[in-house]
Simulated scan of single mutants.
Amino acid sequence: MSNYFIFLSFYRRWLYVLVSVVVSLGICVGSPQKSQAISWFDLLFQGVQILQLSNISDKEEVQLGKEINQQLVNSKIQLYSNKNVNRYVNQIGQKLAANSTRSDIPYKFQVVKDESVNAFATMGGYVYVTTGLLKAADNEAQLASVIAHEIGHIASRHAIEQMQQTAIARGVATATGLDRSTAVQIGVDLALRRPHSRQDEFEADRKGLRTLRRAGYAQSAMIAFMQKLLNQPSLPTFLSTHPATSDV
């Protein structure tokens, strides 16, 4: 008889746990759109892939950035193969990163084979500059100013904020967070589209200027390079939402 009560107590305890999980997950995934419904059974096995973007750790952000970078490199961009050029850009980038307001995460700087004048970044320390941008820069300080600006976006975690906003707008975010594979796809899209607000750009400039000074570069290089690019026939993508140079 005692074994029976022990079994019954054990059974009830786990039944309560299971019911609690079912109810909580049911609340989280409830949605008016049936096509987005996810069974609690699937979520139980996908739970480790759910990201809480509101309190994502540095380690999680770096790993997510790594996965976004893999997608970019594998199917969206072509990296420039010249080792000397890549080493040169990386040396500048690492010097700037060490003097940034967020120097406690690893950074990776890559050159994209693309004649357009462009630069972009994704979360977790990944920065990209195009061969077109390298040709447009008159000197190292001007190149450093763009890289410092992109580091400013990473330091401010702008990509995380944009991912949250995009997930909500697309209706793919739940109370538990965001599915990892969906987060990676959004991250790739954001990296290529660069939908930064003017406020984000201004903040990245402010932090970038501070990083330039601390790394030993002339802050005037940022304004000089922006003015040069603004005078070109077509506006570079990364300046499309940028404040006027007089506001920097």
Rank of each mutant, 00 (worst) to 15 (best):
L43W: 08
A159V: 05
R87G: 13
T174D: 05
L143E: 01
I56R: 01
G171N: 00
D200F: 04
V73D: 06
G65Y: 03
V21Q: 14
R157T: 00
H153P: 00
K34Q: 12
E140T: 06
V62W: 08
A98N: 11
R102S: 09
V127S: 12
N118H: 03
S9N: 08
S39N: 07
A173V: 13
S100A: 04
S100D: 07
L134S: 04
H242T: 04
N90I: 09
R210V: 14
Y126G: 08
S54V: 04
G177P: 05
A215W: 08
I154Y: 01
Y88N: 04
L192Y: 02
Q33L: 13
K135L: 06
I68L: 14
I6A: 03
L18R: 14
N69Q: 10
L18H: 15
I186Q: 01
Q46T: 11
I186F: 02
S20V: 10
A121R: 04
S39C: 08
I154K: 04
Q199W: 07
K83R: 11
Q71G: 13
L235I: 03
N90A: 13
R87L: 10
A148G: 05
I77E: 01
S103V: 13
F120A: 02
Q49I: 11
V89I: 03
G65F: 06
F7I: 12
I56S: 03
L178R: 00
Y126I: 15
G26T: 06
G125E: 07
H196N: 09
Y107C: 06
Q162I: 09
A191D: 11
S20Y: 11
Q71W: 10
Q52R: 12
A218D: 11
D179A: 14
Q227N: 04
S9P: 05
L25E: 12
Y128N: 00
L53C: 09
V21M: 14
E140Y: 04
E203W: 01
R87Y: 09
Q33C: 10
L53H: 07
K207I: 08
S24I: 13
H242V: 02
A159G: 07
G187M: 03
A224F: 03
N82K: 15
L8R: 14
Q94T: 14
K83A: 11
S20M: 10
R170A: 08
Q52S: 14
Y11A: 15
S145I: 02
A97Y: 08
Y4P: 08
G30A: 14
T241Q: 12
R214C: 03
R194D: 15
S145R: 03
M222F: 11
I68R: 11
D189H: 05
D104Q: 10
A155D: 00
F202P: 13
G216K: 09
E115V: 10
H196P: 02
I56W: 03
D104A: 07
A37N: 15
T166P: 03
S35Y: 10
M163I: 05
